[in-house]
Design a protein around this nucleic acid. Structure first.
Lengths: 146, 146
DNA sequence: CTGCTTTGGTTGTACTATGCAACCAACAAA
DNA sequence: TTTGTTGGTTGCATAGTACAACCAAAGCAG
C-alpha cells in the first residue's frame, strides 16, 4: 500500500523526468539544427529511417513520424535534389515509390553516425558500463510505451 | 583494462541511448506542438522559465535558450497579447524590462503542469519507485554534462 | 561634460518547416 | 463500370527562426 511520502517521492521523480526530457528535446533542436551541410535534423532522421528500413514509401515515413504526407513529399524532394536518395516505382503498386538512400546518402549517414557516436562517447566517457546499459534500457522502455 | 567485447557493448549502449533520445526529441515536437490553446511548446517553455526565475529580462531568456533576441521579443509580445505576462521597467536599467507571468499566466502554467504530470503519471504507472529515481538521476546527469 | 561604444529591445525581411486542402493517377471493391 | 480509397504533388497559409538595421539608455574615456 502506497504511503503519502512514497507517493510524494514518485511525484518528484516524475516531475524531474519530465523536466529533464523537455530539456533534452529543447537542446536537440537547438544543437542539431544543422547536422550536416544542407541536412537538417528532420531530413537526417528521414534518411536514417530509410536506411534502417532498407527503403520504404513516403506514406510509411509520414505515418512513422506523424508528419503530413505533403511535408514528407517536400523533404524527400529536397533529399532527392541533393542526390542522397533514389526513388524507384513500387512494382506492387504503381502509385507508390520506394525511396532508398543513394550511395552518397549511405556515405553521409555513416559519416554523421560516426561523428555523433564520437560525441556521445566523450560525453558518456565516465559512465560505468552497467549505468550505460540501464540508462539505455530505461529510455527504450519509456519510448516503447506508445 | 577494457576488453574488445566490453568496448563493443559500450558502443551498443551508446548507440541505443542516442537513438532513443532522438526519438524523445522527435516525439516531443509532434506531441506538444500545441500544448494549450494559443500556446506552443516554445511560448510555454519561456513562460515556465519566467515562473522558475521569478521574472527576468528578454535578454536572459535569449541567452538561456540560445535564441535570437528578436525571436524572444516576438514570443514575449505574443504572451503579452494573450495577457499571460506582465512587463515592468527594470528599475536598475531603464532600457530593460522585467517580464513576469501574470496571474492568468500562473494559472495556465499550473493547469498545464498538472495535466502533463497526470500524463506522465499514467505513462510511468507501472515503474517501480527505484527505477523512477534512477531514471531521473541518469537524465539529470546526462543533461548536467554541459 | 562630451562623444564613442555597448547593451536591451523592436521591427523589417527572408527562409524553413509544417499542415490543410485541392488535385491527379492508380488501385480496389461494389 | 462506377465509386470510393490511397500515394503523391502542389498551392496556399502560418509559425518559428535568424540576421540586420535601428532606437534609446548606459557606461566609459578623454
Amino acid at each position: 500500500m502506497p504511503t503519502p511520502t512514497r507517493t510524494a517521492a514518485r511525484s518528484e521523480s516524475i516531475d524531474s523526468i519530465q523536466r529533464e526530457l523537455t530539456a533534452v528535446a529543447r537542446r536537440a533542436r537547438s544543437v542539431t539544427a544543422q547536422i550536416h551541410p544542407g541536412l537538417t535534423l528532420v531530413t537526417y532522421t528521414l534518411l536514417d529511417h530509410l536506411h534502417e528500413r532498407g527503403g520504404c514509401r513516403g506514406t510509411d515515413l509520414a505515418a512513422h513520424f506523424l508528419l503530413d504526407k505533403s511535408t514528407v513529399s517536400r523533404q524527400i524532394a529536397a533529399l532527392d535534389k541533393l542526390g542522397l536518395v533514389e526513388r524507384t516505382a513500387d512494382p506492387e503498386d504503381l502509385r507508390g515509390q520506394i525511396i532508398r538512400p543513394s550511395a552518397a546518402g549511405e556515405q553521409l549517414l555513416a559519416d554523421v553516425r560516426e561523428r555523433r557516436h564520437q560525441a556521445f562517447l566523450s560525453r558518456l566517457a565516465d559512465w560505468p558500463d552497467d549505468d550505460l546499459e540501464r540508462f539505455a534500457s530505461y529510455l527504450a522502455l519509456y519510448n516503447a510505451h506508445t
